[in-house]
Design a protein around this nucleic acid. Structure first.
Lengths: 159, 159
DNA sequence: CGAAAGTACTTCGCTAGCGAATCATTCGTC
DNA sequence: GACGAATGATTCGCTAGCGAAGTACTTTCG
C-alpha cells in the first residue's frame, strides 16, 4: 500500500539523484505536521480559537498561567515582534492580561484570564483527539520506538 | 540525555493530563520540521533562493519542467491565490515562464527557465546536505524503520 | 444554437510573522 | 553618582499565504 509520499518519490525517480530514504523521512514528517496543523485548525473552530492562540495559551498554562513575553518568544520560537502581535490580539480577545512589572519596569507580566483558561481546556480535549487519531495508527511499543528515533535526530540537530 | 522536548514534557507534568508518548511524537516532529525549514532557509541564501521558490522549482522539475498552476497548487497544497503570487515573483525573477494555453485558453502553461534549472541544481545539493545532517544521526536500518512508522501514520490520516 | 453551469486563473482585502530600528529602563564601571 | 552598555518590549515596513469574489473562457444540455 502506497502513501502520497511513495507516489511522490516514484514520480521523481530518474529526474534527480537523491536518497530515497532521507527524502521519505523528511517529506513524511512535513506532510504529517501539515496535516496535524490543518486538522487542528478545523477542530479548533468549535471552541472559537485559532492555532496560534491556543499555542500561546498552552505554554502559558504550562508556566503556571503567567510568563513574560521574552520567555514565550523563546519557547515558542517566534520573534519578539511576533509575540507582541500575538499578545495584542489575545489581550483584545480577553484571553489574557498584560501588566507592567513593578520591580523592573522594562518587564511585562502576561497572565492568562479565566476565559482564556476555559477555552484552553475545551480546546485541549479536541486537539488531543486529533493527535490520537494520527498516533493511534501505531501500537504502544511502536510509539516508543518512533519517539526514540525522532529524539536521536533532534539531539543531533540541537547539538 | 534529554532533548528540548523531554524538558518541555517534564515541565508539563501535573499541569494537565496528556499522553506523554503522543505529545512527544507530535512535538518532536514539529520541532524537526521547523529546524529543517530554518536550516534550509539559511543554506539557500548562498544560491539566492528562498524556501518557497525552491519548492516550486523542485516540483516543476519533477514534472518534466512544465505544469499548470492548478497542478502545482494541488500538489504543493497551497491555495490558488497563493500559487498566483508565487508564480508572479518567480516569473519576475526570471526563474520560469508563463504562457496562455493554445487549445484551451483558460489554461496557463508554466515552464522552468534555464536560470531556474541552474539555481535549482545548486540548491538541491545544499538542501540534501542539510537533510543528511539530520537523518545522518540514524543508521540505515533505523531509517527504514522510521520511514515505515511515519508511513503508517500518514496512511491512517490520508484514509 | 444559446443560456446556464462549470473550470482555470487572477485580483482584492486581510492576517501572522519577520528583521531592523526604536524607546524605556536598568546595570556596570570608573 | 553619572554615563555608556545591555536588556525587554514595541513599532514599522514588508512578505507569503488565505478565502472570497471576479474574470475569462469552455462545456453541457434543453
Amino acid at each position: 500500500m502506497d502513501d502520497s509520499v511513495d507516489r511522490h518519490l516514484a514520480r521523481w525517480k530518474g529526474y534527480a539523484p537523491f536518497d530515497e530514504r532521507t527524502e521519505g523521512i523528511v517529506t513524511r514528517m512535513q506532510f504529517l505536521v501539515r496535516q496535524l496543523h490543518q486538522a487542528k485548525d478545523r477542530a479548533l473552530v468549535e471552541v472559537g480559537l485559532q492555532q496560534f492562540e491556543f499555542e500561546t495559551l498552552h505554554w502559558l498554562v504550562a508556566h503556571g498561567g503567567r510568563a513574560t513575553p521574552s520567555q514565550l518568544a523563546g519557547e515558542l520560537k517566534i520573534s519578539p515582534a511576533g509575540i507582541t502581535g500575538r499578545l495584542d490580539t489575545l489581550e483584545k480577545a480577553g484571553l489574557l492580561r498584560r501588566t507592567r512589572g513593578e520591580r523592573d519596569r522594562r518587564r511585562v507580566d502576561v497572565e492568562i484570564s479565566d476565559l482564556g483558561r476555559e477555552l484552553w481546556t475545551g480546546a485541549q480535549r479536541i486537539r488531543g483527539e486529533v493527535e490520537d487519531g494520527m498516533v493511534g495508527a501505531l501500537g504502544v511499543e511502536e510509539r516508543d520506538a518512533l519517539n526514540a528515533l525522532l529524539k536521536r535526530m533532534l539531539l543531533a540537530v540541537e547539538e
